[in-house]
Amino acid sequence: MTPLVEMRDIALSFGGVKAIDHVSLDLYPGEVVGLLGHNGAGKSTLVKCLSGAYRMDSGQILIDGQPVTITNPRDARAQNIETIYQTLALADNLDAASNLFLGRELVTAAGFVDDDRMEAETRRIMARLNPNFHKFNVPVSALSGGQRQSVAIARAVYFNARILIMDEPTAALGPHETRMVGELIAELKRQNLGIFLISHDIHDVMDLCDRVSVMKNGKLVGTERVTDVTEDDILGMIILGKKP
């Protein structure tokens, strides 16, 4: 089977610091691959090359076996790659619908943004993702952490993503909401999406992922199937940077 995403030999330096040092990863449809590592290991930087936030210095990205060029977030979106950033990347002064459709606004026949239709669509998807969400007409700065997270998640899943990047999706959430995100990931898996899940939490990763890749100091330590390793093995990889 052809991988959904192949990242081959990706390298990126920031002023002499090798943030990503020739890393290769792949992702299959219906698979969740966890990315683990300390702060500054290069996990977020690596997926930002895929989401178009950074431009890699060298390396190659293939989608469905075809080489693609991703130099900005629009390129990534055109490949049906959606990202939930750790910072959520929401414009705090705009409401949920404006954020959900930011950069992809629904417009009327005359070319004006159609706020009513966007709100209706937002209400529809939120009814599915977070039925307790009712604050549609206030800036997202007035929302709780969990509500803001659900806006960011709604934005990623609304546009028929095939590849989903989730950077610490549960960092700001309580236990109940964390469980909801877990259920969502399972459902998206059934819909054959490929998901990169960046996390600090080894338990999360062992529960939700099929494979786990560990990074340290910009290098890939290794990629393992979660069924083949124990949590201690993974911890060893993270701390010592050695394969079990």
């Binding site: 977030p73 929401l90 705009l94």
Partner: peptide, 20 residues
């Protein structure tokens, strides 16, 4: 859209850029 992007960029320039 132009006006929407003006306000989005003002609210969070990074988010606006990440939204394409």
């Amino acid at each position: 859209r132009f006006g929407r992007y003006v306000f989005a960029t003002g609210g969070n320039p990074e988010a606006a850029a990440l939204s394409g």
